[in-house]
Simulated assay, not measured.
Amino acid sequence: MTVFIILGAGGNIGSQVVKSLSEADQPVLAVVHSAEKAKALEGGAVEAVVADVNDSAALRKVFQRGKRAFLLNPPGNVSADSNAAELATSKSITDALSDSGLEKIVVASTYGARPGDGIGDLTTLYDFEQRAKASGIPTAIDRGAYYFTNLAMLAEPASKGTLPATFAATMELPMVDPADLGVVAAERLQSALDDVGIVYVEGPERYTFGDVAAAFARHQGRDVVVKTTPREQLAESFKAIGFSEVSAEAYARMTEATIDETDLPKLPRRGRITLDAYIARLTRG
């Protein structure tokens, strides 16, 4: 029997991976960082285990209990040096793959992942991809579009008529519900060993922040106007909400890279959850 190991099992993506595998009657070892989250997940064919992703030796022992694993690198603390933190956990998680006995891994990554330094998730997740592949274990990589959950913080200002955005209202941007990423990850965890390489995952269609504003307007019953932060003010806007200087600069560069990206995937794997459905659920609370 194949045991599936899921990192970040208490999060938006990982919890859906656990749910999808459980519905398929597959045994799951759900890895979380707190006893409280473990208690919430435990039950049926799901065993929850508390582990620190910064402890490679302990994580390796967890990996040795299964055959296939979903790997997710947690976001770093943006009030400190988020890039340094993410590179450290990238190394720790992938170091734990050595002598793990795993036969396949599925790695969560992002659109726009690229070599380089200090471009936020685009470079830290590229590092994660490369380290995972270097393990020699068959590696499936799911690059996800901009998460709908990033929009949750905009519900309050939208209720007052303004949608602050780092992108222009008319810019087409691939977006996805993390739950759809979890569904795809569960599918690839169960697929053949030769189902490897990069798959791009986004929602049913591409959206703009104008579409986001219109969705909030429909569900909040008032006009909503997009207010885009000028490029030259991006770093300062991140600092204003608590980012350290180094994290603010990295996120500003990541935003600029996303704005300048023109080579979008032609045939992404499309999820089922629409922007409107997500905003409707968000505004209902």
Score class of each variant (00 low, 15 high):
residue 129 E to V: 02
residue 2 T to F: 14
residue 63 F to I: 13
residue 12 N to G: 03
residue 203 G to N: 06
residue 128 F to R: 02
residue 7 L to K: 08
residue 38 A to W: 01
residue 271 G to N: 15
residue 65 R to V: 11
residue 18 V to R: 00
residue 153 M to N: 07
residue 10 G to N: 14
residue 48 A to N: 02
residue 223 D to G: 13
residue 55 D to Y: 05
residue 61 K to N: 15
residue 209 F to N: 05
residue 71 L to P: 06
residue 257 A to C: 10
residue 129 E to L: 02
residue 76 G to H: 15
residue 153 M to A: 07
residue 231 R to P: 15
residue 167 F to K: 05
residue 232 E to T: 14
residue 172 E to H: 14
residue 228 T to H: 12
residue 105 I to F: 04
residue 120 G to E: 02
residue 269 R to V: 05
residue 205 E to I: 09
residue 250 A to T: 00
residue 225 V to M: 13
residue 209 F to H: 12
residue 70 F to K: 13
residue 106 V to G: 08
residue 263 D to H: 13
residue 218 R to W: 03
residue 228 T to S: 15
residue 14 G to F: 00
residue 92 S to D: 06
residue 183 V to M: 10
residue 150 N to G: 03
residue 140 A to T: 02
residue 45 A to S: 14
residue 165 A to R: 07
residue 162 T to H: 01
residue 48 A to Y: 01
residue 44 G to C: 04
residue 157 P to A: 07
residue 273 I to P: 12
residue 102 L to P: 03
residue 158 A to K: 01
residue 203 G to I: 07
residue 171 M to V: 02
residue 273 I to S: 13
residue 277 A to D: 13
residue 35 A to Q: 13
residue 88 A to Y: 14
residue 196 V to L: 08
residue 252 A to N: 04
residue 263 D to I: 13
residue 34 S to N: 12
residue 243 F to K: 02
residue 229 T to C: 11
residue 20 S to C: 03
residue 154 L to K: 07
residue 150 N to V: 10
residue 150 N to F: 12
residue 144 G to A: 14
residue 192 A to M: 09
residue 283 T to G: 12
residue 229 T to Y: 08
residue 176 V to D: 03
residue 45 A to T: 06
residue 243 F to N: 06
residue 179 A to M: 14
residue 70 F to G: 15
residue 42 E to A: 11
residue 264 L to C: 10
residue 19 K to S: 04
residue 247 S to K: 04
residue 26 Q to S: 10
residue 29 L to G: 04
residue 268 P to I: 12
residue 18 V to N: 04
residue 190 Q to R: 13
residue 194 D to R: 03
residue 249 E to S: 06
residue 51 A to D: 05
residue 136 G to P: 08
residue 85 A to V: 01
residue 5 I to E: 12
residue 237 S to T: 12
residue 238 F to A: 03
residue 200 Y to W: 09
residue 20 S to H: 00
residue 271 G to I: 13
residue 226 V to N: 07
residue 254 M to A: 06
residue 79 S to V: 13
residue 220 Q to P: 05
residue 256 E to F: 05
residue 175 M to S: 02
residue 253 R to P: 03
residue 33 H to Q: 10
residue 149 T to P: 04
residue 90 S to V: 13
residue 209 F to D: 01
residue 76 G to C: 08
residue 42 E to I: 01
residue 99 D to H: 07
residue 4 F to P: 11
residue 113 A to Q: 05
residue 197 G to S: 08
residue 160 K to R: 08
residue 159 S to R: 07
residue 212 V to N: 05
residue 104 K to W: 05
residue 184 V to D: 12
residue 276 D to M: 09
residue 124 T to P: 00
residue 268 P to T: 15
residue 19 K to Y: 01
residue 22 S to I: 00
residue 9 A to V: 06
